[in-house]
């Protein structure tokens, strides 16, 4: 894989308005070959519009949108992408194999049916009508349709909604395999553990702008809070007065403590309660970081208002 500087997908100062609503407000996004990028944000943050811009479904009002250095309106650029949209009901009377054959026919060098079936885990579904499948099975078929054209860039919009844990794990494994082969992925998801498990880079957007971006670890680090949990008889109101303790909550026998300096709090906890058990110390997850980041933004706005 040679290192080219042309991003596989690019948004530069992209602005898109729907009437009075500015859905995307000067967004910059650049995706390198083989990179898995998770696009996170609350509902209405502009994720879908950003993806729609990159797919050529809507035109920017200003700014640049490119796929492989070309306009997404160019069919040649789109022949290098695979797409899985959240809201797409496929014809129920068509069999899975027929859907696969149709979608493959759009691409210059598609994968074989067997390869698609293997990657998406739909080998047993090929002869069945799409309308007779469960929600999770339909998602797997849509995933197969997304990868059948041997794309260099995959757009996956909420790919694992409606899947059970096992199916989700299988799809994650398939995504990792594709990324290992050099396929870049734009993933939008509500499941933060999904982004946490897969993404090399996370971009959090809100109100049509990039709020923050970085690796999962970098994002977590922005929220310096660590969660401490233990079984203890200590009085929570007393603990709340300790230095470096941000927050204390009792849940039955369990004590939940949030702290920015967990080492000193843990040391004091162990000294204060020799009978303390089930101690657990955990860095804030991406979910917490995410809520924190988007909530902080709201708080700032409320203060400004």
């Amino acid at each position: 894989m040679n290192a080219s500087n042309t991003p596989v997908a690019l948004l530069q100062g992209a602005i898109k308005r729907y009437g009075k609503l500015t859905a995307v407000d000067g967004l910059d996004l650049s995706l390198r070959p083989g990179e898995l990028l998770a696009l996170l944000g609350p509902n209405g943050a502009g994720k879908s519009t950003s993806v729609a811009l990159l797919l050529g479904l809507v035109q920017v009002d200003s700014g640049r949108v490119e796929l492989f250095g070309q306009s997404p309106q160019q069919i040649d650029a789109r022949r290098r992408i695979g797409v899985m949209l959240q809201e797409a009901r496929l014809p129920p009377s068509l069999r899975v194999g027929e859907l696969l054959r149709l979608t493959s026919s759009y691409y210059p060098n598609p994968r074989s049916e067997a390869e698609c079936a293997e990657l998406a885990g739909i080998g047993d579904l090929l002869k069945r009508p799409y309308g007779k499948l469960s929600g999770g099975q339909q998602r797997r078929v849509q995933f197969a349709l997304a990868l059948c054209g041997r794309p260099e860039l995959l757009f996956l919009d909420e790919p694992t909604v409606g899947m059970d844990i096992e199916a989700r794990q299988k799809l994650w494994a398939a995504m990792r395999l594709l990324v290992a082969e050099g396929c870049a992925v734009v993933l939008t998801t509500h499941y933060l553990e999904e982004a946490e498990a897969l993404a090399q880079r996370v971009v959090v957007i809100d109100k049509g702008r990039v709020l923050t971006e970085g690796s999962v670890d970098q994002l977590r680090a922005k929220v310096a809070v660590t969660r401490i949990r233990c079984c203890s008889d200590l009085d929570e109101h007393a603990v709340e007065q300790w230095s470096h303790v941000d927050e204390v909550r009792r849940d039955g026998a369990q004590l939940h403590i949030a702290s920015r300096e967990p080492e000193s709090v843990v040391r004091r906890l162990l000294q204060a309660d020799l009978a303390l058990t089930e101690l657990e110390v955990r860095r804030a997850g991406l979910a917490e970081a995410f809520t924190h980041l988007t909530r902080r933004d709201e708080a700032v706005e409320q203060e400004a208002a």
């Binding site: 797919l55 050529g56 479904l57 069919i75 789109r78 022949r79 992408i81 797409v83 949209l85 809201e87 797409a88 009901r89 496929l90 014809p91 979608t103 759009y106 691409y107 054209g149 757009f155």
Partner: peptide, 15 residues
Amino acid sequence: ESGLLTLKRALPMPP
């Protein structure tokens, strides 16, 4: 309404 047309427009279906 079902999003099928949107998906087809995103795919490299010939014009």
